[in-house]
Computed example of a mutant assay.
Amino acid sequence: MRRVKRLPLGKKAVAYLGRCQKNTNRKAEAGVLDIEKEWKSARKTQTMQAVLKTLQKMMGSRERCMYCLDSHGSDIEHFRPKALHHKRMFRWRNLLLCCTECGRLKGNRFPTDGKRPLLIDPTKEEPWEHLDFIPETGHIKARFDPRINAWSPKGEKTVETLHLDRREALEAGYLKTLRRLSRIIDNFLENPSFSASHLLESLSADDEHGLLGWIFIGTGQHHPPFKDLREQHPLIWEKCMADFSINR
């Protein structure tokens, strides 16, 4: 998972979503709302295709799922499920891009702590503040939060809901990306002849699974070769970390 910048929609799409939401709210008040029918009808329109295209653009050329980053994002996902939150069914900030597997696993599940969501929304927060990665196995798990002396509740529920610790193909993809990033760092440590900006650019180009967040924000900085970079070239490390934080 990685932090995703939400792009603005075109005026036509914004207006269309607004009309759809008003119509949905009106039908709900009249007691005649069929949520699935309403969504499927809107989903077939060219304007909703434009909404999907914007979500895909947010994920780069490979159009990865915003949850797992390992599979192609094939459809529009409601962060707050439309079956539970019809008033957000057409809200742009409630729409994400997900793959078939993540969509199936999440379904209408939306754990909360009171009103606070216990799922990570990658367009609103840094996932690696709640998640951790095990480089020996490729597993994703909840991150330990020393402030509460426990595992992150949001990390735990996200992993549990999306089975992030039980998907072999997902683990293989993350491990492949880890090997690529490690190789870039190893090469730099052997021949530190280029700038921090060039190093970060190379890392970003090969980071298909958002592991730079784990490296610069999470616990990856304590694992070699990233630990070696931090200790042997502290200025390079600080520059990479600062630029990464600005651009994410």
Rank of each mutant, 00 (worst) to 15 (best):
R62F: 04
P153K: 08
K141M: 10
E129R: 15
C240L: 07
T177C: 14
R2S: 08
H139Y: 15
T219A: 13
C98L: 08
E238P: 00
A83C: 01
E171Y: 06
E36W: 03
T100W: 05
A15R: 13
D34T: 04
K5G: 00
G18F: 12
R179Y: 09
K154Q: 14
R19I: 06
M48W: 11
G210V: 13
L97W: 09
A15D: 12
K82R: 15
E190R: 13
S197I: 09
K22P: 00
K53Y: 01
L9G: 03
G107D: 14
N25L: 12
S193C: 05
W237T: 08
K239L: 11
I140Q: 00
N25T: 03
D75M: 07
K37F: 07
C20V: 06
Q46D: 09
E129W: 04
R6S: 06
A242V: 11
R116C: 03
Q49E: 11
W92H: 06
E190M: 08
T112R: 15
A142G: 13
T100S: 12
Q49T: 07
F133N: 05
K157G: 00
P153Q: 07
E125N: 03
R179W: 07
R230F: 08
I215Y: 05
E208L: 14
R43C: 05
C240G: 04
P146W: 09
R91G: 03
L119P: 05
L170R: 04
N187H: 06
R80L: 07
E156A: 10
G114A: 10
Y16F: 15
Y174Q: 04
I217Y: 06
L105Q: 11
P153N: 11
H223I: 15
L189C: 09
I185Q: 00
S245R: 15
D70F: 00
E201I: 02
I120C: 07
L17P: 03
K115C: 03
T161E: 04
R64Y: 03
R180T: 08
K53A: 14
T219L: 10
K53G: 00
S41I: 07
L175I: 07
R93Q: 12
M1I: 09
L97C: 07
M66Y: 01
T161Q: 06
F226H: 06
E36S: 11
P224M: 12
L199G: 03
A150I: 01
L189E: 02
F216L: 13
S193Y: 02
G155A: 09
I76G: 01
Y67C: 05
P111M: 13
L131F: 12
K239V: 10
P117W: 14
L229Y: 08
H72L: 14
C102R: 07
I35P: 00
L96P: 00
R167H: 07
W214V: 08
T45W: 05
Q221C: 14
T137A: 09
S245H: 12
F90Y: 15
